[in-house]
Amino acid sequence: MHNAKQPLLVIENLHVAVDDKQILKGVDLTIYPGEIHAIMGPNGSGKSTLAAVLAGREDYTILQGRVFFDGKDLLEMSPEERAAAGLFLAFQYPVEIPGVSMLTFLRTALNEIRKSNGEEPIDTRTFLQRVREAAQLLGLGNDFLQRAVNVGFSGGEKKRNEILQMAVLRPKLAILDETDSGLDIDALKIVANAVNSLFGTIQSYLIITHYQRLLNYIEPDYVHVMYDGKIVRSGDKTLALELEAKGYDWLRSETLSSIELPSTTT
């Protein structure tokens, strides 16, 4: 159905190491505009490493493979170039920026991205309107916008703040790295609702999660299972349910048997 379109993200045979330890061992993934993908997998399988590498974190070594974003070589781009090209990562652990207010932060970010794309700075009224709408969407008051970025925010506020930034910056592809962890059910619904309502403005999502919970509210087109640095299985949303029902141990035994490793542990 999407053959006519150019893929938004193409990951080919990506191998990545950190501190001489190989984390990703050949990841392949293609995301077209208009698709929602989910990557599930146990802790330590490489999900967050993949997110960090896509966002441009520098303490990883690319051993092999290629990544294209919107037709451009992503691995050649700086983190800010990736942001300007329309890639966004919602952090699993958002960072505190003391002394910088949310408004200052959002306006600086938005205008830097606009500048990179040859656009004029956003006018104050449009900006404020966009930010207030985003805050409302996330159930955050206007006073929230006066506070320093993530400083003194609760865990839930930090996660909602990531989605707020996404709503203001309007990327093409948003990667949500365990955005559901640490959210109570009400906050989870708010976040899911925001993600769903922005779909369209934001062309595609890559949702990284440990649990199936978030996927009750955001329906993925594709679910991928990552294990030991590889995507070992892909399917539709029913795969998430299967995984939830059987647990990751099922996957472990499946994987091990499928590649016929001799059992070295008891």
């Binding site: 966002a55 441009g56 974190r57 520098e58 700086s78 983190p79 800010e80 990736r82 942001a83 300007a84 966004f88 990562l89 952090f91 958002p94 960072v95 920026i97 003391p98 002394g99 910088v100 200052t104 932060f105 600086t108 970010a109 938005l110 830097e112 991205i113 990179s116 320093a148 930034q165 910056l169």
Partner: peptide, 21 residues
């Protein structure tokens, strides 16, 4: 890094942080 992923060039990110400090 966080600021850069939001589109701030490294120099702007540095200045923003130093200025706030």
């Amino acid at each position: 890094f966080y600021l850069r992923t939001r589109g701030l060039p490294e120099t702007v990110a540095d200045v923003l942080l130093l200025h706030a400090f």
